[in-house]
Simulated scan of single mutants.
Amino acid sequence: MAAQPSVHANTSGTSLILQLSGAMDYETAPFRERLLDEMAEGRRRVVLDLSAVSFCDSAGLNVLLWAWRQADRSGAVLVLACVLPHVQRMLNMTGVDTLVRVHDTVAEAGAELVADGEA
């Protein structure tokens, strides 16, 4: 039995770090609800750490795009970090990696957001 999807929130400097874990599939409601709750707090720099995402299908991809749109609408910047190869392939194949910045590490993502002056 697969682990239940979860979101663990942490802050690093001025960035909100959200580590997603579990399968991102048709049962992604916990991801969407928790992301909305966390992003409603008003952080302007959001990093989604995908290092613990065991599976991602089109429904999971939809959640990532939804989160990116929500951040954009609120004036925040959302980036991805620690994307595992199976998820990276999906991002490449669909062109999502041309919309949402992808970083190798959470530290790299946070540093670039700060260096870019993202507020």
Rank of each mutant, 00 (worst) to 15 (best):
residue 25 D to S: 04
residue 81 A to T: 01
residue 80 L to R: 06
residue 18 L to M: 14
residue 27 E to V: 01
residue 116 D to A: 15
residue 91 L to R: 11
residue 80 L to M: 13
residue 84 L to H: 09
residue 19 Q to P: 01
residue 8 H to E: 15
residue 38 E to N: 05
residue 116 D to P: 00
residue 97 D to I: 04
residue 95 G to R: 05
residue 8 H to Y: 03
residue 17 I to R: 12
residue 17 I to T: 10
residue 110 G to I: 06
residue 6 S to I: 03
residue 30 P to G: 09
residue 80 L to E: 09
residue 85 P to M: 00
residue 28 T to D: 08
residue 27 E to H: 08
residue 1 M to H: 13
residue 28 T to P: 01
residue 92 N to K: 15
residue 83 V to W: 12
residue 30 P to D: 05
residue 34 R to A: 15
residue 95 G to L: 10
residue 75 G to F: 07
residue 119 A to N: 06
residue 51 S to V: 01
residue 90 M to R: 13
residue 17 I to Q: 10
residue 33 E to A: 15
residue 82 C to K: 14
residue 4 Q to F: 02
residue 58 S to Y: 03
residue 24 M to Y: 04
residue 47 V to R: 00
residue 29 A to E: 11
residue 26 Y to P: 00
residue 73 R to L: 12
residue 101 R to G: 01
residue 4 Q to Y: 05
residue 30 P to S: 09
residue 91 L to D: 10
residue 82 C to D: 06
residue 20 L to T: 07
residue 62 N to V: 07
residue 43 R to V: 03
residue 78 L to C: 11
residue 88 Q to T: 05
residue 119 A to D: 05
residue 56 C to K: 06
residue 100 V to Y: 08
residue 72 D to R: 14
residue 94 T to P: 00
residue 9 A to S: 14
residue 63 V to H: 00
residue 25 D to M: 11
residue 80 L to K: 11
residue 21 S to F: 00
residue 24 M to H: 03
residue 28 T to N: 06
residue 22 G to W: 06
residue 2 A to M: 11
residue 88 Q to M: 06
residue 21 S to H: 00
residue 28 T to M: 08
residue 102 V to D: 14
residue 57 D to M: 10
residue 28 T to Q: 06
residue 7 V to S: 04
residue 117 G to L: 10
residue 11 T to S: 12
residue 73 R to E: 13
residue 88 Q to L: 09
residue 68 W to Q: 04
residue 107 A to D: 15
residue 114 V to F: 11
